[in-house]
Structure formats: C-alpha cells, structure tokens
Amino acid sequence: MHGAASDAGVSNGARLLAFTEAVMCDDEAALARERAALRAVLTPNCFVDVAGVIAAFNVVDRVADATGIPLDDMLLAASAGLREQLGLSRFASAANTPGGR
C-alpha cells in the first residue's frame, strides 16, 4: 500500500484514495475492507462511478505508455507547476514528452 492519508480537500477523499490503492494492489483483505468502508459513505451510484473511473484510467494509462504519446502542448503548459509539485518527471514515461523531464 502507498498510504495516502490526506483527503486532498475532496469529499471522502481519503476513503477514495485508500480504495483506489486497494483495487490496484493484491491485498484481497485490504480491498474487501476498503470497499466496505467506501460503500458506507457513498451512494451506490457513486460507488459504481468510482469503479468506472478506475477502469477508464487503467485503459488510458496503458494506451498512453505503450504508444509513447507525449503530453499535449496545451496540457503540458497548464500542468507545469502541478507536475513539479508531484514529482511526475520521475516516471519513465515522462521521457515521451519533450520538456517532461
């Protein structure tokens, strides 16, 4: 687990992060625990939406990293500060974007 403790100022953020990490890891007991905890605070519709977003970005990330696309110029400029703050240039796939590293 990667232990995201903050809620990032987002409603139920800490629960969302803990559940997302559990889905992405192999600890089945943790996943069951975090699923139950998240379902206790979200509506069923919202819970399905969380599953959907996790699905969507597991598709997008694989397509992006396996095709070597660069970050779009518009997004590159808009996200410079955030990328530095989060240290995203440490990811190997940053090499696909001129100026990403």
Binding site: V50, P70, T97
Partner: peptide, 24 residues
C-alpha cells in the same frame, strides 16, 4: 461529471495514473 463530483473523479483518476506511473 457523473454522480460522483468532478474533483472526486479526478482524484481517483490521478491516483490510478500515479500508481501506474503514467506521466501522461
């Protein structure tokens, strides 16, 4: 947005991408 609000959606999306080490 969906039923989930947009900041919640983006938080989940960003965490997935960080765990996948996806710069894009």
């Amino acid at each position: 947005r969906r039923s989930l609000d947009r900041p919640q959606m983006e938080l989940v999306a960003a965490r997935v991408s960080a765990l996948n080490q996806c710069f894009y």
